[in-house]
Design a protein around this nucleic acid. Structure first.
Lengths: 259, 259
DNA sequence: GGATAACTATTTACAGCGTACGGGGTTGTT
DNA sequence: AACAACCCCGTACGCTGTAAATAGTTATCC
């Protein structure tokens, strides 16, 4: 199903689990498994085999309980997904870098590459995230650090929001494909090279005259990088984005007075 | 399943269907349904109810054949997804605008907004697309037009590829959330306002002192736009990206000689 | 100390998914 | 008339999330 997104469960249940606000049970037998164990097992499965391999049965089995016992700990799979998202978000900007306003460009580069590495490490978060952010401690922490990369530049709060949104949107857009490379290879059983090898003979029978620019540019690009070059594209795009932000930031910075 | 991506089927089968290279059958009864009808029905379902509502059974039923007859026309669901992607790609930059090199900024704005509208109209393509582009006529056509928006600027083929990649990556990143707003609302049964209403009381019990910047910026942004403002964020980000590209393009354009 | 409430764990069951398999009906060619 | 090519379909399997009912364990109350 493509309806696997975060925030699909009961918002309050998710919040309570995210912030550890479930009160300790007074009676009843000791639990064989904890929520943290379940979430951790689910993340392990998702990292190794992709989100589609994460089923409540698999997760329950991984921690040694029967399929339906999963629901003793977590109300439904939807809440599990929220918890998975927040727990891996703890890896972003883990060591809380010291950001100096004068170095905003380096600061944002650090933020961008950290988020990129995060997506590459956990590509399954990409389709899961929506505009309703998971409201968990780790997600908050990484967002706070990202924003602090552009503190003290004379930007208004709204401008800071816009700038970080731009950078993270770009990172997401640029990385989504590279992050899913392994997944694509696993699901198709082909490397990119094998895929091209299979596809190339047919493409030679296609009339490319209606696509002159694509035909020329695509050929050059293909000959240079092979099929694609995500690292190079990311670096190029990020520099352009930062150049654009420089125009914006310098246009209001030290020289000019804020109004 | 989150393993719903394009390019998962037999590449050759997909290509033959994409380019209409299946030879007409010489014998046998007339088909009750055509591939085009099946694809069109699937797109209708996906547009209305999301990708998760597209099942081979549903699509077959929609064109009036039994569930398993689907496979007479299309080898598997994977090929259906490829065909769906390409057919809707025909809507992008449909009228092939006239691009003048001097207006590259307006040209790219047109490309960006057209792709944005495309994602908004068919949000289900977002998780489907991978780095292995669907090699269909409509996909080629839109890519060709997009590239022609920056022809004649003195950019190398490789630079053109990089620039278009940047713009389309940004559009994808910026639009993904807005595009799925309706889906999120349908799946959760809540509007964003209802969601905030359910979530706010809990957030007031959370200690925000570890997230001072997020707390301040988030509060200001929330008070100004409500939860979020995708249109404004898109416009802001696109201008910054174009500013960055202006630095790059003007840095090598008319005045300077190309080496 | 026995009843009861709170809690965990489990079994069974159901609808929906993609699709393998095998059979039946229809059409054109030999 | 026979056959091959082709379309259509019924049955079945293993997978999914989870509702419902039940059994077992622990702490509290009378």
């Amino acid at each position: 199903m493509s309806d696997e997104i975060s925030g699909r469960g009961d918002p309050l249940k998710s919040l309570q689990l995210l912030w550890g606000r479930t009160e300790a049970p007074k009676r009843g037998p000791k639990a064989k498994a904890s929520v943290a164990e379940l979430v951790s097992a689910a993340v392990t499965i998702a990292d190794a085999e992709g989100l589609e391999a994460v089923s409540t049965r698999r997760v329950a089995e991984a921690v040694g309980i029967s399929p339906m016992s999963f629901y003793t700990h977590i109300p439904s799979k939807a809440e599990l997904l929220d918890l998975m998202m927040d727990v891996v978000s703890g890896e972003i900007l883990k060591d809380r870098p010291v950001f100096k306003p004068a170095n905003w460009r380096a600061n944002l580069t650090r933020v961008a590459t950290d988020y990129r590495d995060f997506y590459l490490a956990h590509p399954w978060v990409i389709p899961l995230a929506t505009h309703r952010t998971v409201l968990g401690p780790n997600t908050f922490r990484s967002a706070d650090i990202a924003l602090s990369a552009i503190e003290g530049l004379g930007l208004t709060d709204l401008e800071m929001d816009r700038v970080i949104t731009l950078v993270l949107d770009y990172v997401h857009g640029a990385v989504r494909n590279a992050a899913r490379e392994k997944m694509v290879k696993d699901l198709t059983g082909m490397t990119d090279e094998e895929w091209w090898y299979r596809v190339a003979p047919f493409l030679e029978t296609v009339d490319f005259t209606p696509y002159p620019v694509l035909s020329r540019v695509g050929k050059t690009a293909g000959e240079t990088y092979g099929a694609h070059d995500p690292r190079g594209a990311f670096a190029f795009g990020l520099e352009r984005v930062l150049d654009g932000l420089a125009v914006f930031i310098d246009g209001k910075a030290p020289g000019k007075k804020r109004r």
